[in-house]
């Protein structure tokens, strides 16, 4: 298990839990990172605050890889602009491309995402695109130079779990890149299930931000993701179509 690493952009990670940092207090970030065991944290780029305001970077432990997203982008062009600004902020080459033209369901625009991924990968970014789980789009993202694909489980912030389960499984089976399940995972059990299916990692934010005890929920997710990963590596046993199969010896009964 110790050499079971998640490789993204040539970098090896032991943790398979990518932590979001939105919608909760900066003072909880350190505990969230610690209890999640996270090595990657997502951020957004917005118009800057002046020094009177606290800066999130002051709360993130040093050895954590930052994964800026392109939220707010409605086109490939806007996503590329945000990604370049994020890199100019001087915290590495990782970027989570997310492009949405729909503010009600926050669904990603796969076509624009492929375009942005191609441009950014050529510029040397490690591109992790947030996507709707569609096999053709995923293949296009592979060809565009993505470092992973990040299919949604259900709408962002919904905590509804693996609504797209069958289609995520197709990506896991067919795409030769890490499949990181992003968006909609609301419970550790759902994260565990995705990992058992062969997901490479889980990204969660709202599930933690809306929990009663954020660091405790971070710890619960960590344990669930590790359990699911181990189960996947252990190769889960078969399921009977019908009937039963005794676990106990069929000899030596105390009758006849």
């Amino acid at each position: 298990m110790n050499d079971d690493k998640l490789i993204l952009g040539g970098k090896a990670f032991s943790s398979r839990f990518i932590l979001g940092s939105g919608k909760y207090s900066l003072s909880l970030i350190e505990a969230a990172v610690r209890d999640a065991g996270a090595e990657i944290i997502t951020l957004a780029v917005r118009r800057a605050n002046t020094k009177e305001h606290e800066n999130i970077l002051d709360y993130i432990p040093e050895n954590i890889t930052l994964l800026p997203n392109t939220s707010g982008a409605r086109t490939a062009e806007e996503a590329v602009r945000i990604a370049r600004l994020a890199r100019e902020l001087g915290c590495g080459d990782f970027v989570k491309v997310e492009i949405m033209r729909d503010s009600k369901y926050l669904l990603p625009d796969n076509n624009e995402t492929v375009k942005a991924t191609e441009i950014l990968a050529k510029e040397g970014f490690v591109v992790l695109p947030y996507m709707y789980p569609d096999l053709y789009a995923a293949r296009d993202l592979v060809n565009a130079g993505a470092a992973a694909v990040m299919p949604l489980a259900s709408p962002i912030g919904s905590n509804k779990g693996l609504a797209t389960k069958e289609f995520i499984q197709i990506l896991i089976d067919e795409i030769d890149l890490p499949v990181i399940v992003d968006a909609g995972i609301g419970r550790p059990s759902q994260a565990c299930e995705a990992m058992e299916m062969g997901a490479a990692a889980i990204m969660a934010n709202t599930a933690l931000a809306t929990a009663g005890d954020l660091p405790l929920m971070a710890a619960a997710f960590k344990a669930a993701i590790e359990a699911g990963r181990k189960a996947y590596l252990a190769k889960p046993g078969r399921v009977l179509t019908r009937g039963a199969s005794a676990s106990d010896p069929l000899t030596g009964f105390l009758h006849n």
Binding site: G20, S21, G22, K23, Y24, L26, I29, T42, L43, A44, V45, R46, R47, A48, N49, N55, I56, L57, L66, P68, N69, S71, L85, A86, L89, C91, I156, G157, A183, M203, N205, T206
Partner: peptide, 10 residues
């Protein structure tokens, strides 16, 4: 002119 920085996000 745009002056930007990082904030919390998912």
């Amino acid at each position: 002119v745009e002056i930007v920085g990082f904030v919390g996000g998912g």
